[in-house]
């Protein structure tokens, strides 16, 4: 049974307040929702990024669970190493060697990696692909804020077309990023892993339910969460949940899951909104509303969103 809101609210905080993430940052919202979804012991790994630098400034930490950061491009290899050691001890115990006294023999340990889109789509993609293929038991959560926010808003392969970043700036000749984002969730589904999903922080039930499913699986699972960044998106901090909902309503970021190869929409907007409703509140797309070139860009983006939405509907058997 999925936890209801009351049960979720009574779950002890595994990432406490007092961290130094920005007001309105989507990351701690996502991390808390994910970690609320299980009562089992959880060990977390993070790649280098905002979450890591803002929650662990020595000698302070916001983590109430064991947590490790090694480097930027290896969150998946890191969590795989921890899981491998757990499995090694369990396997030895099955052959009669006592478990180390610090491991609870009755508990079912969970392993989760939190990484940004830089550490997932780009520099850490190989590590994620490898760990997934090897079948380690972990939940990998991509805190996808669609650019390298920790280093100051540079483009990633998750940045949508038209997005202004400091390395895909909107200029007088080039209006922001020229390429569509990589469809990483589909890439991960193509690994034939047992569970893949997309979610947002603005629909807590969607995300916690997906995390619950993922944690229950003894294998690699992946949830790609669109995680608004008020600083990088030039967005009012209080709009974080709302803008993520608009991403779902415009089908710029559809909510779905792929469970054992079965694609399924988990949210279908009653009325598919035009992408402008999602773009307009965000300063990173402001230049697209200034001139004809911007309108052309918006047209391309709408066509892409439509194409990807129809592709998804087809995969989900909705067409």
């Amino acid at each position: 049974m999925p936890k209801n809101l009351k049960q979720l609210s009574h779950t002890p905080l595994r990432l406490t307040g007092g961290h130094r993430l920005c007001p309105g940052c989507g990351e701690p919202i996502v991390v808390r929702q994910v970690l609320m979804a299980t009562d089992d012991p959880v060990i977390a790994a993070s790649c280098t990024g905002c979450l890591e630098v803002s929650t662990t400034i020595f000698p302070y930490t916001a983590w109430n669970i064991p947590w490790i950061h090694i480097a930027f491009e290896n969150a998946a290899a890191t969590i795989a190493g921890i899981e491998a050691m757990y499995k090694a001890h369990k396997a030895r115990a099955a052959k009669g060697t006592p478990l180390p006294d610090y491991i609870d023999p009755d508990a079912d340990y969970k392993f989760v990696a939190f990484a940004g889109d830089g550490g997932t789509y780009d520099i850490g993609f190989q590590s994620l692909s490898g760990a997934t293929e090897r079948g380690h038991q972990f939940l990998y959560v991509c805190l996808n804020n669609e650019a390298y926010m920790n280093t100051g808003i540079q483009r990633s392969s998750a940045t949508p077309m038209g997005g202004h970043t400091t390395t895909s700036p909107a200029g007088s000749v080039i209006p922001g990023k020229q390429q569509h984002q990589k469809d990483l969730t589909a890439c991960m589904a193509a690994h034939d892993m047992p569970y893949v999903a997309q979610s947002i922080p603005g629909r807590w039930r969607d995300l916690t339910r997906k995390a619950e499913k993922a944690f229950a699986i003894d294998g690699p699972t992946f949830i790609n969460v669109l995680t608004p960044c008020p600083l990088g998106w030039r967005l009012a901090p209080e709009m974080t949940p709302e803008i993520s909902q608009l991403a779902a309503d415009t089908c710029m970021w559809p909510l779905y899951e792929v469970e054992d190869g079965q694609w399924k929409l988990t949210y279908k907007p009653k009325e598919k909104k035009p992408i402008e409703e999602y773009l307009e509140p965000q300063g990173r797309f402001r230049h697209l509303f200034r001139d004809e070139k911007g309108a052309e860009m918006r047209q391309k983006m709408q066509e892409w969103a439509d194409y990807k939405w129809n592709q998804l509907l087809e995969r989900c058997g909705e067409q």
Partner: peptide, 26 residues
């Protein structure tokens, strides 16, 4: 042997996984 042998996809992941596994306790 009782070892959990992880045939990783690169040396970078090899040393990352080794460091994490050691940190896990073993």
């Amino acid at each position: 042997v009782d070892t959990n042998f992880v045939a990783v996809e690169s040396e970078h992941s090899a040393m990352s996984a080794c460091t994490a596994a050691a940190a896990a306790g073993g």
